[in-house]
């Protein structure tokens, strides 16, 4: 009952949020300087040419009018047509989304693995030099932003010791049997592990660049909660029962210490997705973020609008997912 109410409330707030984002973005990208039509035409185009094309794209109308037209289209599933790519925005955006999702989720997985391992090791070896070393490494990881990690990784693993690919999503000469745009997932499903390897060797460095700062945040917070939990009476009780220190950390402390980290991971994951914009550019990875930068450079208003809305949908979706997971994991919330 309470859960249903919460869910309903969340859906309403989500809808309002999305509408707000749509309105703000729509107006902002139209008042900043830069004319998409002028950029499409060759130099020396006449004023009539510009006026004609402007009218074709509806940019001669007032901004509120444009918005109503756009919103009317959206309600029927039409997000407009890209000015530069001359294709429906929705198809373009949905075509690129899988690449970005795969990269983000891979990065998230790496961040959780690295951060989790650091936190568990640091807790097991707390108050030793190992913990000190982990703390220092995390401090360094945090003080450098993801795109700089991207440059460092390109330099080290792409140039000095070229073991990984630093450009693109997949080797262009390969024959791809895929019917969806989820290449990584589909390569695994089709048991084409040669392709999986090729995809991973392209994705590893950008994913790592995105993962490093998040791994440090996860590692710090999780270790802190774990260490606090290790003093609690039920953990001490488990020790008297014959459990080893490692087992105590894993099965007694971790399930309780993980909740605050989980909330944080949700928020940070949305930042990570935001980070894909620059990282995809850096690694020429054909995802949504890379497309967003092209769209902004070309003042492709409908495309920018579509991408931003999609990002907003992802962000709110992730937040909802985190809240639901939190409720599922915490028995005190579950039983109200």
């Amino acid at each position: 009952m309470a859960l249903l109410q919460t869910l309903l409330l969340r859906m309403i707030t989500t809808a309002v949020t999305l509408l707000g984002v749509a309105v703000i973005v729509f107006f902002v990208i139209r008042v900043v300087p830069g004319n998409p039509i002028a950029m499409m035409l060759p130099p020396g185009a006449t004023a009539e040419d510009i006026a004609t094309l402007t009218a074709i794209y509806g940019l001669d109308k007032s901004i509120p009018q444009q918005f109503l037209i756009w919103a009317g289209g959206v309600l029927q599933g039409d997000f407009g047509t890209s000015i530069t790519l001359k294709q429906p925005v929705l198809a373009l955006v949905l075509g690129r989304l899988p690449a970005t999702l795969e990269l983000s989720v891979l990065a998230l997985g790496m961040a959780i693995l690295i951060g989790g391992a650091a936190a568990l090791t640091g807790t097991r070896l707390r108050e030793t030099r190992v913990e000190g070393g982990i703390d220092i490494a995390q401090g360094v990881a945090l003080s450098v932003p993801d795109f700089l990690w991207g440059l460092v990784l390109i330099l080290v693993f792409g140039v000095l010791v070229p073991v990984f690919q630093i450009s693109g999503r997949v080797t262009p000469s390969l024959q791809l049997p895929f019917v969806t745009d989820f290449y990584l997932v589909e390569s695994v499903v089709r048991l084409r592990f040669d392709l999986t390897l090729d995809l991973l060797s392209h994705m590893l460095l950008p994913a790592l660049a995105l993962a490093i700062p998040l791994a440090a945040i996860i590692g710090q917070l999780l270790k802190q909660s774990l260490k606090e939990t290790m003093h609690l009476d039920y953990v001490t009780l488990a020790r008297t029962q014959g459990y080893s220190e490692a087992k105590v950390i894993w099965s007694q402390a971790l399930p309780n210490a993980i909740l605050p980290t989980l909330t944080l991971v949700g928020v940070q994951f949305t930042f990570l997705i935001g980070g894909t914009v620059i990282i995809e550019r850096l690694f020429s990875y054909e995802g949504l973020g890379n497309m967003a930068i092209d769209a902004v450079i070309n003042r492709d208003l409908p495309l920018i609008q579509g991408i931003v809305i999609l990002f907003a949908v992802i962000f709110t979706g992730v937040n909802l997912l985190v809240d639901l997971t939190y409720a599922a994991l915490n028995p005190r919330l579950r039983h109200g």
Partner: peptide, 27 residues
Amino acid sequence: PAARRVKVGASCALIPQDPLTALNPSR
């Protein structure tokens, strides 16, 4: 340490002071 843990775990037990904190809240 490991042998001690096993020996104590098998032959001793603790009734703790504060029952409100001595049970794992999530299990």
